[in-house]
C-alpha cells in the first residue's frame, strides 16, 4: 500500500505535459483519453460505430481507429479529437497493425475472411488477402517482412509475405486465436488462443512451434481462463497476458514460458498498453467498463479508471 502511494506521488511530481493512454469504447462509440500523470480521463471523443483496434502513426501525429460497424478505419487528430478522414478498410475491420514503413495498415476484416492492406497516404487498398474465418489478431515483424493474421474460427496463424502480399504459411493453433505479437527482434511469434486457453510460441524462421503456455488461475475453472491481448516488458523477459473472464493478468517468464504471477484486474480483461518507460500497464476491462492501472515492478493493481462502455483497445501517446 505504502509503496503504491509513493509511486503515485512520484508520478504527480513528474515534469511537463502528461503522456496519455487512449482507449476505444466498443459500445459507446468513443475513445477515452487518460492522463498518465493524474490517472484520470481528460477527454472523450466520438468515433464511428463499434471502435475496437487503435494505433498511432510512428510520429504520433494521427491515430487510426477501427470503427468496425462503420466499415472504416478512421484517422483522428489526437490533438483535437477531430476525425480527419476515413480510410477504406474492407468490411468490419476489427484489429490492425501498422507496417514499420509507417504507411501500410494491415487490417483484419472479421466478417469477410480477408486481410486488407491499405496505403494510408494514397488512401487506396493495395491488397486483399484471403485468410481463415473471422480474422482478428494482427502482427508485423520488426523488419516488416512478415505480417500475421490469426483467424478465430479457422484457428490458424496466417503468415503473409509483405513483399508479395501472399500467404506463405498457415499454422494451426488452439481454439479461437485472438492476438499475435513478434518478440526478440522478430525471432519468435506468439499467438493467444482464447477458448484453447493457451499461447503458442513459434520460431519465426521456420514457423515451427517452440512451446505452449498454459494458465491456471487459482479458484477459476480452466474454461474461464481465456488469454486475449498480451504485451512484453521493456527487456522482453516478461510477458503480461490478459486472461478475459478470469479477470486476471498473467505474468509470464518469456525464457521458461512459465507463469510467475497473476494480478487481479477488472472484469473481462481484453487488451493493454504501457506508459513510456513501461513502469505502468493499463488494461481494458470490457465488462466492468474500466481500465486497471498496474504497477509493473510490484505487479500490483494501483487504480481503476472508469471509461466508456466495453473498453476494448488501448494505445500509448507520448506528449513530450
Amino acid at each position: 500500500m505504502i509503496r503504491s502511494a509513493g509511486l503515485i506521488c512520484c508520478l504527480l511530481a513528474a515534469p511537463a505535459a502528461a503522456d496519455e493512454i487512449w482507449v476505444t469504447n466498443e459500445k459507446d462509440d468513443t475513445v477515452s483519453v487518460i492522463s498518465i500523470d493524474t490517472l484520470e480521463v481528460i477527454a472523450t471523443y466520438p468515433t464511428g460505430e463499434r471502435p475496437r483496434g487503435i494505433t498511432f502513426s510512428k510520429d504520433y501525429s494521427v491515430v487510426y481507429i477501427c470503427a468496425s460497424d462503420s466499415d472504416a478505419v478512421q484517422v483522428m487528430d489526437p490533438a483535437t479529437g477531430e476525425i480527419l478522414h476515413d480510410l477504406p478498410s474492407g468490411e468490419d475491420p476489427e484489429q490492425f497493425v501498422l507496417h514499420p514503413n509507417d504507411r501500410h495498415l494491415y487490417i483484419a476484416n472479421e466478417d469477410d475472411a480477408i486481410t486488407t492492406v491499405v496505403d494510408t497516404q494514397t488512401r487506396q487498398v493495395i491488397a486483399q488477402i484471403d485468410v481463415g474465418v473471422e480474422p482478428e489478431g494482427m502482427a508485423i515483424s520488426p523488419d516488416g517482412t512478415i505480417a500475421i493474421t490469426t483467424s478465430e474460427t479457422t484457428n490458424m496463424a496466417h503468415w503473409i509475405d509483405t513483399e508479395t502480399q501472399e500467404l506463405f504459411a498457415n499454422t494451426l493453433v488452439d481454439s479461437r486465436p485472438r492476438h499475435a505479437e513478434f518478440v526478440h527482434d522478430g525471432a519468435q511469434m506468439w499467438v493467444s488462443s482464447e477458448i484453447g486457453g493457451t499461447i503458442t510460441v513459434f520460431d519465426t524462421s521456420d514457423q515451427s512451434e517452440i512451446g505452449k503456455i498454459d494458465f491456471e488461475v487459482p479458484g477459476v475453472h480452466r474454461d474461464r481462463v481465456q488469454p486475449v491481448g498480451f504485451e512484453f516488458s521493456a527487456d522482453e523477459r516478461t510477458a503480461f497476458v490478459a486472461l478475459g473472464p478470469s479477470n486476471h493478468i498473467a505474468v509470464v517468464n518469456t525464457e521458461t514460458l512459465e507463469v510467475k504471477d497473476y494480478i487481479l484486474v477488472g472484469r473481462r480483461v481484453w487488451h493493454m498498453a504501457f506508459n513510456a518507460d513501461k513502469s505502468l500497464l493499463f488494461t481494458t476491462n470490457g465488462v466492468s467498463g474500466d481500465v486497471t492501472v498496474i504497477d509493473v515492478a510490484n505487479r500490483t493493481a494501483l487504480k481503476s479508471i472508469d471509461v466508456g462502455r466495453f473498453p476494448w483497445g488501448a494505445a500509448f501517446r507520448p506528449t513530450q
Binding site: 475472411a113 481463415g132 474465418v133 479457422t154
Partner: peptide, 10 residues
C-alpha cells in the same frame, strides 16, 4: 462454409 474456408489451407 466455415469448414471449407479452413480446409483450403490444409
Amino acid at each position: 462454409e466455415d469448414n471449407i474456408t479452413t480446409g483450403r489451407f490444409l
